[in-house]
């Protein structure tokens, strides 16, 4: 049944080949029985990425009117072993949708996700799933005449997120190499948690337009004080200023210290120099723009040499504001380059 010369034939184990033969027979007969659940579980344990099998399993579960809560529990075990598999999360999400969960079940689900993030705190699928659960069910709540999540639930989620970003705090325990308990700390560099904070504090339904922007800025400044080279925190600060149209110069006094060296810091923080440059450029005066361009050149030549091409590009873009004639020539050049790439 396998064309001999197909690309990348896989040397399946006999166990997998046999199980797949049964599966093909079952699909041909369109059988949906208890033994289909056994067989599909067996195959999924051998190949959790098998989307056809997952799908068939789900339609069998529905056909048999099986206990979907029991299936969700089975998925707890699967998820912890296959955090990077799309299919495991996809199945879980399908189950949850069909369960039409009440708040108690949703809270259990959220607790499960939080726990899954302890051993793998930056797992993209896990965070995506958390986002999905909140966005899906908070908006459904409105359709049903009220938010499923009360303000105190959102508050609790924010507290958890604070913990994830607290490098001095403990978020949970993990099993070590010899089965011992190892404490896991929060991490101010966890970019996923920063993204989650943005969702909770800025972009989610119910909070839009109500953000305490200064509190967010102060929080981020404290994080930068703890880890001055933290890209996530600097990006968050930029994001806040851009989103709420706050001039960069307004926060520069608190950031100026990072533009210089100290006893413990041999070089200035490039993010701070960039900030200063943007703050100057935003004023729009020719003199300030030229100073801003000079700072970008410092980044290229001294403080962030690996990115020299990028910083020079930024500097050229900036100088177009003060040298319009040269600017149009540059634009033409850039257009030519784009044309070659997309041609």
């Amino acid at each position: 049944m396998e064309p001999a010369d197909g690309l990348v034939p896989i040397m399946y184990s006999e166990e997998y080949s046999d199980a797949m033969s049964y599966f093909r027979a079952i699909v041909t007969e369109n059988e949906k029985s208890a033994r289909v659940l056994e067989l599909t579980e067996h195959i999924i344990r051998l190949n959790p990425a098998h989307y056809t099998v997952w799908q068939y399993r789900f339609s069998t579960l529905l056909h048999l009117e099986s206990d979907l809560l029991a299936e969700l529990s089975l998925m707890n075990e699967f998820a912890s072993q296959n955090l990077k598999s799309y299919q495991v999360w996809h199945h879980r999400l399908t189950l949850l949708t069909h369960l039409n969960p009440d708040l108690a079940l949703l809270k259990k689900e959220i607790a499960f996700i939080h726990e899954s993030l302890i051993p793998d705190a930056k797992n993209y699928h896990t965070w995506s799933y958390l986002h999905w659960v909140y966005t899906r069910f908070s908006s459904l709540g409105e359709e049903m005449g009220g938010n499923r999540f009360a303000e105190k639930d959102w508050e609790a989620e924010r507290g958890w997120c604070d913990g994830m970003l607290d490098s001095d705090g403990v978020i949970g325990k993990q099993e070590g190499d010899e089965g011992e308990d190892v404490l896991v700390n929060g991490d101010g560099r966890n970019n996923s948690a920063w993204g989650w904070r943005w969702y909770l504090m800025v972009s989610r339904e119910g909070v839009r337009g109500k953000t305490d922007v200064q509190a967010e800025i102060d929080y981020t400044l404290k994080q930068i004080e703890q880890i001055p080279h933290n890209a996530s925190a600097w990006n968050y600060l930029r994001g806040l200023h851009t989103h709420f149209a706050i001039p960069f110069s307004q926060t520069f006094p608190q950031l100026e210290t990072y533009t210089s060296t100290t006893e413990t810091r041999a070089k200035p923080v490039p993010f701070a120099i960039e900030w200063e440059s943007d703050a100057l450029a935003q004023t729009g005066s020719e003199e300030e723009v030229k100073r801003a361009a000079g700072l970008l050149l410092d980044l290229a030549d001294k403080w962030d040499v690996m990115r020299r091409t990028y910083w020079r590009y930024r500097r050229n873009e900036l100088l177009k504001q003060v040298r319009p004639s040269k600017a149009s020539a540059n634009v033409e050049q850039a257009e030519k380059r784009t044309a070659t790439v997309t041609a």
Binding site: V8, I10, N47, A49, H50
Partner: peptide, 8 residues
């Protein structure tokens, strides 16, 4: 590589 079975 069995996990790649669906994506050969």
């Amino acid at each position: 590589a069995t996990e790649g079975d669906g994506n050969r």
